[in-house]
Design a protein around this nucleic acid. Sequence first.
RNA 1: GGCGACAUAGCCAAGUGGUAAGGCAGAGGACUGCAAAUCCUUUACCCCCGGUUCGAAUCCGGGUGUCGCCUCCA
Length: 468
Amino acid sequence: MLKVFNDLTMEREEFVPLEPGKVAMYVCGPTVYDYFHIGNARTFVVFDAIRRYLEYRGFKVTFVQNITDVEDKIIRRAAERGTSPEEVARQYTDAYLEDSAALGIKPADVQPKATEHIAEIIDFIQRLVDRGYAYVVDSDVYFDTSRFTEYGKLSHQSLEDLEAGARVEVDERKRHPADFALWKAKKPGEPGWDSPWGEGRPGWHIECSAMSTKYLGETIDIHAGGADLIFPHHENEIAQSEAASGKPFARYWLHGNLLNVGGQRMGKSLGNFVTVREARRQYDPEVIRFFLLSAHYRSPLNYTPESLESAKGALERLYNAAVTLEHLARPERLAREQGRADEFHARLPKYKDQFTAAMDDDFNTADAISALFDLVRDAHASLGPDAPAGVAAEALALLRELGGVLGLLGRAGGLDDLAEEVQSLIDQRQAARARRDWKESDWIRDELAAKGIILEDTPSGVRWKRKV
RNA sequence: GGCGACAUAGCCAAGUGGUAAGGCAGAGGACUGCAAAUCCUUUACCCCCGGUUCGAAUCCGGGUGUCGCCUCCA
């Protein structure tokens, strides 16, 4: 039974989608004004893994993620650079898609952009105005939070609590400090679209309500994002959507914890961030992905160079196992040993169950990964050089299957044909070893290492792999 | 002030009542021409103090410390 922690109820609940077998899932995407950083990546990677697991579990998932391509920061960035907001948005949308692909994040089924849904957004706001949930001041439109009695149900705060926070900017034109803009009147030099209230652009929160409703319907199964979006963003989405439709907006609200650096939140404003782009120069993106999945998604996770190194070592161990298994799985091998391998073979389902149980438990990726390591250790210990190829092949298939659920080990195995030059060097080295010419032998090994080919002399013959 | 988390070995991190997973790093051993990979062995007064219980890292109460949200932010 799949259990998920629902931030709306603050409880772990059985996951039951509205329509059996189908999941409507919406994850808030990036505002494209800069490269995204590893902290942002944590959320995207985590919910990508969750999506993959739901699919693995047999659900037909419709995954929607927006791209916010009109917003204050984009406009500001464009002004700084003397270019247009469209240009800034285009550049960083491309960068976002490229970096996410590198992190192994599957493309969304629908990736709507705010600027391409202005008509839907205007309709949505109009509905709120008509129903008395929004009011117009000059050419701005605000949501009237006082009218929505359940306001605060996600962040578990009342309007009074929020007011007491005293960090709300005072704006005399708003009826309540917590009221937020649905439509912002155009200021000189800003992009704008015609609307019943004058030229302007949408507020941040409304796009998600409008686009989620358009592509997934009025009530969706899962709405997710980073924990920092709980308030005000998701609170506001609930208010807008439920005020407009009169129906529950999302059944399960999932939020990923933030990534810390030096015990503090990684954030643009703190200047302590590392973009995925930068990190990619130093680490294989799969290492970054592994690191981001190495803690439970609702736990804090601290970013340090050491933890990345640790992730690298761990991932290498998994890949080493894949290489070993692939060698053992070669069909031409003669298997002379059967006993231990048979017992191991019988244990394979256990590892799959272990993995599934961990993921069923509110997507415990850290625990699920440990099932991979348990499988790998058992495989190494149980499959000697003479183990049957079929068992090795099955173990490798399972490792790839489970790794794939997490978006890992995509390159597992895949012993491609070596370049002839490389193969002849290996042959030369074998000849040198046969005549105990260690100098020549070691020289060739170093030579290949420089090309990223690692040689290992094993009881069952020389074997090679690519450096991670 | 309000709302909410977190505190487990050198480091990272699972574990929601029954002898403390997993990874990284370290040490020793096996294998190897040497390596590499791998295997075996090895390292925890579970932040503190009370309480509940036959039994608590796990539940309750009280501390201490760290963090997040309450303003744009994944």
